[in-house]
C-alpha cells in the first residue's frame, strides 16, 4: 500500500498510518545511503524540481541528493535564478512547470500557503519544504524518524521544543506529528515568541526551561533568528541565551538518556551551548542523514511506490 495523496503540504492533514508508512519506508532508504554505490533506479525518468524562494542549503541539498540517489532528474531553481524576481506570479510559475513536465515540485517559500497555490495549479506532486511560519513537514518526519529509531517508539515520550515557537514552521509540523504519534509535547520560549492559541494544539507552553525540561526524553532546540531581536521580541541575544540557551546544566534536568535535536543551522552559544551540540546526547548529525532517507521515502511514495517491502529492488 502506498500514499493515496498527490501532495505533502503539511503534517496536519496526515494520518498516523501515513506517518508510519513514510517512516517505515525510510528504513530501507537509509540502507541505500549506506551502500558504496548509492543509486537505485526507482525514479528514473522522473523530473524533480527544487523551487526555492528562500535560501536553504541544507534542505535543498537533502532533497537533491534524495532525488539523485533514486535516479530522478533533479533541477534547482532558486530565487536569484528564477523568474520570481522578475515578478512572475506563483500561479504562472506553476503553469510553466506543469507544461515542462515536472513530476514532483519541492517548494520552499517565505509565505504560508504558497505550496497550496502550486498544488492547486499543478497535476504534479508538490512537497512543502517550508512555507512561512506554517509547516515544514519533511523536517518533522525526519525528526520523528530519528526519535523512533533511537527510542524505539514515539508514543509516551516527553518532547520539549525550545525557542521561537511563534515563527517556527518546524515547531508546528513537529507538534502535529508528535502529538498524533502519542508523544507529550511542551513548548518553551519567551512569552513574546509563543503564538496565541498554542495550547489548543494539544501542547503545554512554558516560559522557562526549568519548568519545561524536567523529565524530557527529547529536546528539540530551534534556531533563533537574530532579526527577531531587532523587531523587539526580546531585548538582547545575550539575555535570550541566558534565559533560553540549552546548556549542559539544563540538559541535566531532563532524563539521563535525553536526545538533543536541532534542525540547523545552529547558533552555537545562543540557543544551544557548543558542548551540548557536540555531546553524546546530540543526534544532530543523524538528523541530517535521516533527512535524506525520509525524503527518499517520500519521493518514492508520492511517485506511486508501494511501501517499505517493495522499496528496494
Amino acid at each position: 500500500m502506498g500514499l493515496s495523496r498527490k501532495d505533502l503540504l503539511g503534517i496536519q492533514e496526515l494520518s498516523v498510518e501515513e506517518i508510519q508508512l513514510i517512516l517505515d519506508t525510510a528504513e530501507p532508504m537509509r540502507d541505500i545511503i549506506r551502500r558504496q554505490i548509492k543509486k537505485v533506479p526507482t525514479l528514473r525518468g522522473k523530473a524533480l524540481i527544487n523551487l526555492f524562494y528562500e535560501p536553504s542549503t541544507r534542505t535543498r541539498t537533502s532533497f537533491e541528493l534524495a532525488g539523485k540517489y533514486m535516479s530522478a532528474d533533479t533541477i534547482n531553481i532558486s530565487t536569484s535564478t528564477s523568474s520570481a524576481v522578475k515578478g512572475e506570479t506563483l500561479k504562472d510559475t506553476a503553469k510553466t512547470l506543469e507544461v515542462m513536465g515536472a513530476d514532483i515540485v519541492i517548494i520552499r517559500h517565505g509565505a504560508a500557503g504558497a505550496p497550496h497555490i502550486l498544488s492547486k495549479h499543478l497535476s504534479a506532486s508538490v512537497i512543502n519544504a517550508g512555507d512561512g511560519f506554517h509547516e515544514h513537514p519533511t523536517q518533522a518526519l525526519l525528526d520523528m524518524y530519528t526519535i523512533r529509531e533511537r527510542k524505539g517508539q514515539i508514543s509516551g515520550l516527553k518532547v520539549a521544543i525550545v525557542g521561537d515557537i511563534l515563527h517556527s514552521r518546524v515547531a508546528r509540523s513537529n507538534i502535529w506529528g508528535l502529538t498524533k504519534m502519542g508523544a507529550e509535547v511542551c513548548v518553551i520560549g519567551p512569552s513574546t515568541l509563543l503564538p496565541p492559541g498554542i495550547a489548543e494544539l494539544g501542547v503545554t507552553p512554558f516560559t522557562s526551561l526549568e519548568e519545561g525540561l524536567p523529565g524530557a526524553d527529547v529536546i528539540i532546540v530551534l534556531r533563533v533568528q537574530l532579526e527577531r531581536q531587532q523587531k523587539g521580541l526580546f531585548p538582547t541575544i545575550r539575555e535570550y541565551a541566558r534565559l533560553f540557551g540549552v546548556t549542559a546544566e539544563r540538559v541535566g534536568m531532563a532524563k539521563p538518556d535525553v536526545l538533543i535535536m536541532h534542525p540547523g543551522p545552529m547558533n552555537r552559544g545562543v540557543e544551544i551551548a557548543p558542548e551540548v551540540a557536540d555531546s553524546v546526547h546530540s543526534v544532530i548529525n543523524e538528523q541530517v542523514t535521516n533527512g535524506v532517507a525520509v525524503r527518499m521515502a517520500l519521493l518514492y511514495l508520492l511517485a506511486g511506490g508501494g511501501g517499505p517491502h517493495e522499496a528496494i529492488g
Binding site: H134, R172, P196, G197
Partner: peptide
C-alpha cells in the same frame, strides 16, 4: 490573531 493564525502560520 488566534488559534487559526497559529495553525495557518500567518
Amino acid at each position: 490573531e488566534g488559534y487559526f493564525s497559529t495553525v495557518f502560520g500567518l
